[in-house]
Write a protein that binds this DNA or RNA. Structure first.
Length: 127
RNA sequence: GGAGCCGGCCGGGCAAUCGCUGCCCCGUCCCAUUGGGACGGGGGGGAGGAAAGUCCGGGCUCCGGCGGAUCAGGGUGCCAGGUAACGCCUGGGGGACGGCGUGGUGCGCGCAGCGUCAGCUUCGUGUGCGGCGUACGUUCACGGAAAGUGCAACAGAGAGUAGACCGCCCAAGCCUUCGCUCGAGUCGCUCACGCGGCACGGGCGGGGGACGGCAAGGGUGAAACGGUGCGGUAAGAGCGCACCGCGGCUUUGGUAACAAGGCCGGCACGGCAAACCCCACCUGGAGCAAGGCCAAAUAGGGGAGCAGCGGGUUCCGGCAACGGGCUCGCAGCGCCGAUCCGCGCGCGCUUCCGGGUAGGCUGCUACAGGUUCACGGCGACGUGGAUCGCAGAGGAAUGAUUGCCUCGCGCGGCCGCCUCCUUGCGGGGGCGCUCACCGCGUGACAGAACCCGGCUUACAGGCCGGCUCCCCUU
């Protein structure tokens, strides 16, 4: 189903935000986008590619199963779209509407967001 | 074959592609003393029965020296056993409710018999209320109410040494009334005997009553000061008796809770302890963000060593040389090999120590461990043997997509029957859905966060076993 590209579609720890300081930096100085399901904060980094941070809050979904589902969908979408993105740190937060939405809907919503991020950040790189 | 209840088990399978992660192996590179790190490849692991709620019990860790006693606080509460332990589990005992069986009684109805035509009796049946039994089911925070304090709304006459609303009863005493009778008094009539009236008192008999007796029945209530029956009585009542219940003593059985029997007592001692309380037993507190180790940069703390040269001095010591103090200037590094000037940096330098932040490592998964066999035990479980290695993340992995299969459910088609329109092909509507087939849709509760033992709660569907009931076939 997925188009198999030449690039590796891996998602090792290198491509994730793992420290509080990295999240704080993005939150403090990043550009914000969003739609009905997700909010993203983007800040350019000095690495060779994009990195992803997840923020699915407890108040968005009460059950851990639903939070895991949303996180996995975001990660999978980022993994498949990583080569369309510039070298940025992006923090994706789920909004309340994401609870209960079908996986297909969420994937479409995320693809639109990735497009938005690559266009805006290519035009006017922040910082 | 179906339905219900109870108990146990499972919680979709296979394949392909793209990914994540801890372990092992290989390769390349970097740092390097064993070794460590980065990247790439391969192998074989990778959520649950509840991982959940965080309600109990432990392990483990730290804290205040917790050695003993007492008190406070908290918890537990029939008995015995199991267990590391428990508020858990197993077995047993008891109570309550229901079911079943049995027997009694009140009321209604029916048949029959007796009869002095008021009724009575037997039987059957419906219904109400107690009793007894129970190898059945469910359920119970199941120690103590003759240590004390307290509570009981509403209803009801009365709620704890209670009470009389309706009701029942006039035996005695009391009140009243009627009849008969006696007594003495008074009045009237009569010459008198005597007769009559009036009120009073006594006796006998009848009726009525409550300011009398009763607590059986009705009624109220969650609960009304033992229950049923017979005797007894004016009516009644443990007033008497039998059985049951209760209490005391005792015998037997049982480890015990308790049960069964005997004797005595005439009933005294109602309920609530999930009200305070009393009794017995248990009990330090906090938690893996516990705790341990390493430790950058920056700022700050402490110790040690080194702190030069020249000038001045109305300071101190000294006879003096000189030494110390104070003060002024120079002194370091970089910018061209050197010098001068200028500019910039620095404003004591070097070194050690401990605290400590980010961060990293550890604690971290091997065990009251799983499976299985034998033996002991009614059982929970225990003992012994064999065998297996079974998640360790950390802004948080264990996934995503597609296809096929399996199973259940729903919808539609197919199929069968009936019916309507049509010459016919065919079409519409209704019912059934047993089996098979096709298509579409749908698939429960829920995500490890130090680890075990339980409890509780959530849960689509399926499988197995037992019991009860119904239908079909032989």
């Amino acid at each position: 189903m997925f188009r198999v590209s030449r690039e590796q579609l891996t998602f090792p720890a290198l491509k994730r935000l793992r420290r509080k300081s990295e999240f704080d930096a993005a939150r403090a100085r990043g550009r914000r986008f969003g739609n009905g399901f997700f909010a993203v904060t983007v800040i350019s980094n000095d690495k060779s590619g994009p990195r992803l941070g997840l923020a699915v809050a407890l108040r968005v979904t009460r059950t851990a199963v639903e939070r895991n589902r949303i996180r996995r969908i975001i990660r999978e979408s980022f993994r498949l779209h990583q080569h369309t993105l510039p070298a940025v740190d992006v923090v994706v937060s789920a909004r309340a509407n994401a609870r209960g939405a079908s996986a297909q809907t969420l994937r479409g919503s995320l693809a639109a967001l990735w497009r938005q991020v690559s266009e805006r950040c290519a035009l006017s790189p922040s910082s």
